[in-house]
Amino acid sequence: MTRLAWIRLAIVLGAFAALEWLVQSGRISTHTMIPPTRMVTELWAILASGELTGDITQTLGNVAIACLLSVTVGFVVGAGIHAIPRLRRALDPFLTTYYAVPFFVFYPLLVYIFGMNNLPMIAIGFMFAVVAMIINTLNGLDKIPRVYDKVARMHQMSRASMALRIQIPAAAPNLFTGLKLSVAYAFIGVIASEFILAPGGLGYAIAFAYDNFDNETMYALMLFILVLVTAINMTLHYLEQRLLRRQGF
């Protein structure tokens, strides 16, 4: 591990230690917060009992479907928009302001239409993630040096061969950014939906625990989500580094 990583680890552990001390010493009431060590033991108990395995698989399944859909659709739509400069110019302001629209207001509507099942959550996760993929696909295609076009023609490459051999590898760094954001946004979308109105899932379990003044379960689950999402993000970051470092990105 590098020196920076050690400092980072020390900061995170320090923050948890400080929180532990604040709660243990009574400076923060146990009605508001429980000590991090209790969160860990509580989480261990919950995971071991298996009572939340269903919620966890439901959340992860929904996130996975939303991700897969948004990355595929986002890439195809992004490439399509990029091919039509006039459409792209007209859509640009809508894409850039897209995230200003708080899409969660559509969530109750989606529940109303599709019923209380996984579809509305996947739809919200998808709506949240797909535009990040579109925007990053566009950015990636924009950044391809124009000279590659000449190189492709000098090599008498077909349109498909050029897309596969030049455009996609050249856009890969941005496509990966799009993938990373899609994963993060799909998580945010799905968990927030579960939180507001859902038949199950991690977000629902937290909201349920909150409503029942069950701080132990609530904080244990929060810790679980924080650790899970951070682990996934770090894995993606590591993969990205391995894939792209050699290219000087």
């Binding site: 040096p145 000279v147 000449k150 000098m154 030049i166 050249a170 290219q247």
Partner: peptide, 17 residues
């Protein structure tokens, strides 16, 4: 582009990947 013609451009056209 006809066969037998090669070109090198001013911009760096090497493929970083």
């Amino acid at each position: 582009v006809p066969d037998g013609v090669g070109a090198v451009f001013q911009e760096d056209a090497s493929f970083p990947w």
